[in-house]
Design a binder for these strands. Structure first.
Lengths: 344, 344
DNA sequence: TGTTAGCACTCCAGGCGCTCGAGTGCTAAA
DNA sequence: TTTAGCACTCGAGCGCCTGGAGTGCTAACA
């Protein structure tokens, strides 16, 4: 384990390095008020810390730089999450007091605001709506064997699905179908839709609807909704280029490219089950992020995780500030959704 | 005006420069088969072309580089749009033969595919749906003075608006409102909605609905739909970083940043009224694009422009290929939408 | 035993000078 | 009008040097 003095030095090196983006030398550290030792002493400790793998040296006569292991130790043991600065807090609060009707709008807004506050790239996933309950189903025939199913949830979110069936159904049948659907299906979570429909509706429909197969086919397509991919909002991707570690375009390009593949984001995104998850460097699930850190958290609706917020940047990141902001935001977003769902 | 030989040389310089991304010298040009002159002759012509402003020289002993004026002349007078290469054509066609239900999906797909084909950044605007006709309106009350209006258009596109009114309307009134709406409003283009409603509905509603003010308020909010901002899809923004002119991060960052401001894109985007519009360098409406070229075209539905496709890259761009691809795509997309609207 | 001053050593960034080669403009000949 | 020849220019690239920041080690000190 590290001695308190080593911890103090490691901590100071990381915080300085995060600000300066340049290797930190013993002289510079000795100028800190809370470090009362001479450069020579600090050099000894730094040599030990390097031997243990918490620091590295770009070359012999340079200062020290935190290693991945160093950051990890810092995040796990040294970081004390304090209060966010007042200004940031006020600013964040104001985002959630605007009148907003659509949940997607809030997700987009959060991505933008956080990217401004952190000067990093922000990824917002979701919210998934498949745990919400159905309020109403509407089926609008378009002719030519097509129709649009409209599903309105609990919280006022609207999903639409285009459905096809092999032949024209009778207008009567469609009407019956919609009525039966609404009878049976209101209050069922979207993710349970398929199961409920097959369990409760099949027999009923067989009695009342003439073209039974068609009706089933329609149901089948309606049930595609829960299988939708998650929506992704990305804010401030261009902030990345301002970071000195990405001044070399070759470093930045693969990462921006990764972010453009919207569908695969949820494959590598850390889905922090509770609290905040920090993935440093090679801890990330894809090689493109081996020099990046992703800090992520979850927001909920009625206790159920419905989406995620993440901040992506170089490993040299202001962990403290970003974690404060994320923690606040996930909570505020959770509250917002709850308020939204109950009032809407 | 330029002599034929000058045109030949300018043309060759541009095409070589587009490929090599390096200043073109007289020796290299003399190696072209179609140029039968000695380097010395070419040098003389190049000096003239430079004097006239079609070429520039990075420094005294370097080759020549096309100026903005040079590109402009090339695009206006020298470019003969030939046939697209077979491979690209087949590939593009395949995009439009997939079964696709949602128009947005096709826009996103187009952005991605074109960015792969051109290795540039692609911007797809729209499609705007406000010239489409209404097929059906549905009003779903959420309680607490809120409701969701669902508007289904002609082509199967679904728009939803959240509306609020000051007090609870009677269930009867809502029903009446919906019935009256559907009677009067079907077949009206979304953009005409407000006018039609005020003209035809006010008196009718005054007779049939008890809380007249509330009904009007609802109508008012429903009419927000046409004022929605255009949807924007961007593909391959990271391609930009692969271009040598953006190897300096400082050049790329403001442009990527510009692309992130979705709302303002339509302010500077060239809305080619017909055919293809090419904006070279400073011709663009924003300074950030002073070293970029935007090539844009329009796609239509039923003769009416509903959206735009643009390719954004450095002024050193393969104008020929990009214009071929854009021209083909806009046509294919127009056909696709027409097919979609009539069948859907 | 832990801390610190002193010192020799290392190594990079950056400035300087040099050369090489690609490319030019000009002149004179074909 | 075209072209060969030639002197000239200029930047890229390489090697060299120097200054300074930072280190590790040793010896003295508390």
């Amino acid at each position: 384990m590290l001695t308190p003095r080593q911890q103090l030095i490691l901590s100071a090196i990381i915080e300085d390095y995060v600000r300066m983006a340049e290797p930190i030398g013993s002289r510079a550290l000795a100028k800190h008020e809370e470090i009362q030792y001479s450069p020579a002493t600090i050099r000894n400790e730094m040599a030990d810390l390097e031997e243990m793998g918490y620091l590295t040296q770009p070359h012999t006569s340079a200062g020290r730089v935190p290693s991945q292991k160093g950051y990890r130790f810092y995040v796990d043991n040294l970081l004390r999450l304090g209060q966010m600065d007042r200004e940031t807090g006020e600013f964040l609060k104001s985002v959630f007091t605007k009148r907003i009707d659509e949940v997607e709008q809030v997700a987009r807004e959060v991505a933008n605001v956080l990217s401004m506050l952190t000067k990093q790239t922000v990824i917002v996933l979701g919210p998934k709506t498949d745990t919400e309950k159905l309020r109403k189903i509407e089926l609008i025939p378009l002719g030519g064997g097509r129709a649009i199913a409209i599903l309105v949830t609990n919280s006022g979110h609207v999903e639409t699905v285009h459905v096809r069936f092999s032949s024209e159904m009778e207008a009567d049948d469609v009407e019956t179908l919609v009525r039966v659907l609404n009878d049976k299906v209101v209050g069922v979570p979207i993710s349970e839709l398929r199961r409920t429909l097959y369990a409760e509706l099949a027999s009923e429909l067989r009695r009342t609807v003439e073209r039974f197969e068609d009706a089933i086919a329609v149901l089948n397509e309606v049930c595609q909704v829960p299988e939708r991919e998650e929506t992704v909002f990305i804010g401030g991707a261009s902030n990345m280029l301002a970071q000195p570690e990405f001044h070399d375009v070759g470093k930045a390009q693969p990462i921006l490219s990764l972010l453009e593949q919207n569908e695969s984001i949820s494959n590598w995104f850390p889905k922090a089950e509770d609290g905040i998850e920090v993935r440093i460097g090679a801890e990330n699930a894809v090689v493109e992020l081996k020099d990046c850190t992703v800090i992520a958290t979850t927001y909920r609706l009625g206790g159920v995780p419905v989406g995620h917020i993440g901040v992506l940047g170089p490993t040299r990141m202001d962990y403290n500030r970003v974690m404060q902001i994320l923690s606040f935001t996930s909570q505020a977003l959770t509250e917002f959704l709850t308020r939204f769902a109950s009032s809407g």
